[in-house]
């Protein structure tokens, strides 16, 4: 909790995310996010409709809040999958064998693909299955975890305390779980916070392109896409509010990453 006191940005960010999640899960929304009122379409923000209404007459505020449920859950699910597989594969890639070298070569080849396009293709070919969005996020982020783990673990393996553990007869398994992993946890947490931010952007990008979460279920990317056409005719609120929320979420997780990075760096000294 000391972290929070010293990092106002992270405190504000985390509070914002938690509030957003709680609101999307439990709070009574002023309007049904999927309901449309023909007569009340394209209304500017007002006391009745804080964020205005969209082309179909749905309340933008209700939709933005409701979208957090699906967008954030997908982002979290994708991040957890990336984290688990990335750490396991990253550990495998940081041993001193031939196999680990091959794994790294394969990683290089894989990362040469434009991963967002790969993700797009996967989700489309699966017939817009939501679990494929999670898989796509993992595909993009697993290599990042692997590289991070590999560079951290390789330098830790050279450290004196790992040499000391070998000298006392610790098994490779014991060295991994007692000496290596606890010492990479800090950077993994930082990476995880950044991954969530990245996942939110990827999901928004996919929905913007019309894959993944599809209408009428509200999603930030989908709302931006729907409102994009209205920008030129002056109805700025339809695309701007979901865009702003994406921006704030990314900022919040970046702040959190900074705060975690600071504290782990300090406790290392």
């Amino acid at each position: 909790m000391k972290v929070m006191r010293q990092h106002t940005g992270a405190t504000v960010g985390v509070s914002f995310i938690v509030l957003l999640l709680l609101a999307s899960l439990f709070a009574p929304l002023p309007y049904d996010p999927k309901a449309t009122e023909g007569g009340a379409s394209l209304q500017a923000p007002s006391g009745a409709h804080w964020f205005g209404t969209d082309g179909a007459g749905a309340d933008v505020f209700s939709r933005v809040i409701d979208a957090a449920r699906i967008d954030l859950s997908l982002a979290l699910a994708g991040t957890v999958l990336s984290l688990v597989l990335g750490v396991v594969l990253g550990l495998a890639a940081s041993t001193k064998g031939k196999g680990s070298e091959r794994l790294v070569r394969g990683l290089d080849a894989f990362q040469a693909f434009p991963l967002l396009i790969l993700a797009l293709a996967l989700v489309t070919l699966s017939g817009n299955k939501l679990y494929m969005v999670v898989v796509a996020i993992a595909l993009i982020n697993i290599p990042r975890y692997m590289r991070l783990l590999r560079s951290e673990v390789l330098s830790l393996r050279e450290s004196r305390f790992v040499e000391a553990a070998m000298a006392m007869g610790a098994s490779p398994r014991r060295i991994t779980f007692r000496h290596l992993l606890p010492n990479v946890w800090g950077v993994v947490l930082v990476q995880t916070s950044l991954t969530i931010a990245n996942a939110i952007v990827v999901i928004a990008a996919l929905s913007f392109l019309g894959v993944g979460v599809s209408a009428p279920t509200p999603s930030w990317g989908g709302m931006i896409r729907a409102g994009a056409g209205n920008m030129s005719s002056g109805e700025w609120w339809i695309a701007s509010f979901p865009g702003l929320i994406v921006l704030l979420c990314v900022l919040a997780f970046n702040q959190l990453a900074d705060a975690i990075g600071d504290t782990t760096a300090r406790s290392h000294r």
């Binding site: 553990a165 606890p182 290392h268």
Partner: peptide, 30 residues
């Protein structure tokens, strides 16, 4: 590894040779 109970080492760098995440008790009991 079993043999290593009988042969040990003390390093030049006292701090670097201790896992910073473990307590002294955890280090010595290992």
């Amino acid at each position: 590894r079993a043999m290593r109970a009988d042969m040990q080492i003390v390093f030049q760098e006292p701090y670097e040779s201790l896992n910073p995440r473990l307590t002294v008790g955890g280090i010595v009991s290992e």
